[in-house]
Every structure is written in C-alpha cells, then in structure tokens.
C-alpha cells in the first residue's frame, strides 16, 4: 500500500556538505555507473552523441552564485538526489503501489514491475528527485544504493552508497538519522544541517550543511597579501656573502 509508514525503525539518508563539495560530478558518474549495472532497469541515455542528448540520472549537481550584501560573491556546488522524505508526497500519489517507503530503514523505492509510468510521483516531488527512464518508461530514483549497503559480497568499506564512497572531497556522508549518536546526526547538530523547502512539508531526511562563514579582511587594515612571500629570508648576510656585502658598502 502507498500509505506512508507512521514511523520507521531507522532513517537512512545522506548529509551533503555544501562547504566541501568541489562540484567535480564524480558522485554523478559513480551513481550512474552503479545503478546502470546493478538493481533495476539500467539508467538509459537517448541520442547520447546526437544534437539533443537526454538520459536518466538519480543525482545531479547544480551550481549557484550567492551574493551577500557586503562581501564577495560565492559559488556553491549543490548536489541533489532523493531526500527520502518522511512525508514523501511521491509515495501517496502513486496509484499502483509501485512507490513505497520501507518501514525498516525509511528508504523510498520504486517497484519497477508495478510502475505504469504515469509520472504523477515526479510531479508530486518538489526536488526533482524522480526521472522517467527514456527507454524503460518506468520511474527511476535514488535507492540509497540499497543493493550496496546490505551487500555482504562487498568489502565492508564499500557498503555505503556509490556517491558517498566515491566523493574525493568527503562532502557526502551516509548514516542513520534516527540514531542521535550517528555520524550524520552529529554533523547536523554541529554544523546546523538544513532541510530543503521545509514549507513543502515533505519532512526530508537528507540534510545539507551550509557553507561555513568566509574569512573577512579586517576593515581599514593595510594588508599586502604578498607580504609573507616578499619578506627577506636572511636579515643579516653571513660568511662570504657577508664580507662581500660589507666590502661593496664601503666602496
């Protein structure tokens, strides 16, 4: 049934650190790779080398410019994938029961053999987390790599979502938000993790860590940014150079 569970035993999800993300798109590639070769219909591309290529992705990286009132503009890379909402509107609109939220860990999944491809769940999602596969015509979404995180055939270090495992900057963290001692809960508490679009009342599980405040130059202070590099290495020449220095001074 597409009723949402009243509560889930665990709340698995991601913390995405907007301070650390460098916008390299490695998580996008890792996600596309893993989810094309493993569970469910492959993530297809159409007209991949043509004039109008399209394809399904479960994770995409936007970039935003933020202009503070009295400081230089900041460029912020912004990875976006399914937030595995507690009040997932995509689940309740599904007419077939293909979309569901798991009671045991809170992951939102699509049973592809039940999906009729009506697209209503994608309309109901404010985050654009769901995309219709252009070849299979079923709805694709982030599975939180459900086929990795419990997979005992993988080394333990690999039992986390492909995007988290591959991130070279350590900007993505995976864990259980229901446990206040977990790495993700601690990060959210320390750094003030935020919800996206709280007014949509989807109660997302994933959290975003806002960029840390930037250093600011002291007002009115004259600072030569090159000063540390221009400072003389040896104040008083010694030895042969010292004698030469004194001899040349006398001339």
């Amino acid at each position: 049934m597409t009723d949402l569970p009243t509560s889930t035993a665990r709340k698995l999800g991601l913390v995405i650190d907007l301070d650390t993300c460098v916008g390299c798109h490695a998580c996008v590639v890792a996600c596309k790779g893993w989810n094309t070769e493993n569970y469910g219909a492959p993530l297809a591309d159409k007209d991949a080398y043509g004039a109008e290529p399209v394809g399904s992705f479960l994770n995409r990286i936007h970039s935003y410019e933020v202009q503070p009132a009295n400081a230089p503009a900041q460029l912020i890379h912004f990875p976006k994938s399914c937030l595995h909402c507690e009040g997932a509107p995509c689940v309740t609109v599904c007419p077939t029961g293909a979309s569901y939220k798991r009671v045991e860990d809170g992951i939102v999944l699509v049973n592809e053999s039940d999906c009729i491809g009506c697209g209503l769940c994608a309309w109901a999602c404010p985050y654009g987390a769901r995309e219709m596969d252009p070849v299979e015509n079923v709805m694709k979404k982030c599975t939180l790599c459900v086929d990795r995180i419990y997979n005992e055939n993988l080394p333990e270090i690999d039992r986390e979502p492909a995007c988290v495992r591959t991130c070279p900057a350590g900007a993505r963290h995976f864990g259980d938000f229901a446990d206040p001692e977990s790495n993700v809960s601690q990060l959210v508490a320390e750094r003030g993790g935020i919800e996206l679009m709280p007014e949509q009342e989807t109660k997302p599980v994933n959290r975003y860590l806002p960029p840390r405040p930037k250093d600011e130059w002291a007002k009115d202070a004259e600072i030569d940014v090159l000063a540390p590099l221009l400072a003389p290495v040896a104040e008083e020449p010694k030895g042969l150079l010292g004698w030469l220095d004194k001899a040349l001074e006398r001339l």
């Binding site: 202009q67 900041q74 806002p210 960029p211």
Partner: peptide, 11 residues
C-alpha cells in the same frame, strides 16, 4: 537551496 541566509541566490 537553503542558501538564502547568505545572500541573493542565482542559478
């Protein structure tokens, strides 16, 4: 984006 607290956000 949750970035509104810093300043004006543009894509």
């Amino acid at each position: 984006t949750g970035l509104g607290g810093i300043g004006a956000v543009t894509a």
